Amino acid sequence: MTQHTFSKTIYAIQHLAFEDLGSLEDIFYQLGFRIRYFEAGIDNLTPALNYEGLTVILGGPIGVYEEQDYPFLTAEIALLKQRLADKKPTLGICLGAQLIASALGAKVYAGHQKEIGWSELGIKAIEHNILEPLESISVLHWHGDTFDLPENATLLASSALYPNQAFSIDHHVLALQFHIEVAEDMFERWLIGHTCELRQAHLSIPQLREENAIHAHALEHAAYHVMKQFLKQIQLLN
């Protein structure tokens, strides 16, 4: 089968039930794609990571380096290394971006502080930066780990707290530390699911809810343009 045969289905690997494709799912549907989900730790990820079309690796609260507690990570990273070596189209979000960085040989580690909440990115002034639609747009940050920039990666964005917020490898890999996929009407799931983390970090749940109401719609609009351009880059859209 050729890549063109596969092109109308996008595979997505979940590490946590409520951290799904969010607004990106609607975007992909609007652009004529179907979605197939795989659950890390439960499903065999080989079909997803050997897939010739686009595979999206989503977020979750575990660390790339916690392979002793979560042995499935060993196989996931090994399959991802081969996928990246084969230059298959791959999008990573949060943990997904960290897994890509690790598979490319970069160090992934606990950051100096948690970055949770809405704020703007510093979009790098490079030619044809795919994240240009996010200029002056607040995105959702929700992570405690970070990573070094992999060799041969192009840095696309930074934040005030963490310099490595997004990178690309040629045209086939896009890795985003922040959450471009959060959907305004689904954000309450995050506040419920991550309540222990939010309380431990002494963060205001009502404030996060209010910020979502202010910023999420603009992010969804910008995400459409980023994803459409990425699909064109990997030749799944004309």
Rank of each mutant, 00 (worst) to 15 (best):
Q3F: 13
I123A: 01
L198N: 07
A160G: 09
Q68I: 11
Y37M: 13
V173R: 11
S7R: 08
N238K: 04
G96S: 09
G22M: 13
R83G: 04
I77R: 13
A110Y: 02
A17V: 14
I100K: 00
K81S: 10
Q229G: 10
K8M: 01
L219H: 12
I10R: 01
K87L: 01
V64K: 03
K124I: 14
A153T: 02
Y51K: 00
G105M: 13
P163V: 08
M186I: 11
E181L: 04
R83F: 10
Q98T: 11
L208I: 14
F230R: 10
S136M: 06
H128V: 09
S102H: 11
I93T: 01
F230Y: 14
A103H: 12
G60Q: 05
R36W: 15
H141G: 00
F6I: 03
S136R: 03
S204R: 11
S158T: 01
P150Y: 15
I13W: 00
A75T: 15
V226C: 07
T195M: 08
I123G: 00
L99T: 14
H141L: 10
G122Q: 08
E132W: 08
P89N: 03
N50E: 15
I205M: 09
G59C: 06
Q3K: 15
R36C: 10
L45M: 11
D26N: 14
E39L: 11
L208E: 12
H194Y: 11
E115D: 10
L95E: 07
D86K: 03
G59F: 02
I62R: 03
I192Q: 05
F178L: 07
Q30F: 05
A75R: 11
A17Y: 04
L236H: 01
A12D: 12
F72S: 14
A106W: 02
E66A: 06
D170P: 06
D148G: 15
P150S: 15
S119L: 13
E52V: 15
Q235K: 13
E211W: 05
R83C: 06
D20H: 05
G63H: 11
A101S: 13
L121E: 04
T5E: 12
D185N: 14
A40N: 10
E127I: 08
I100H: 00
R83P: 11
G193E: 11
K88I: 09
K81L: 10
H15Q: 08
N212P: 07
I100D: 00
L99I: 10
I116W: 00
Y70V: 06
Q229Y: 13
H202T: 14
V226L: 14
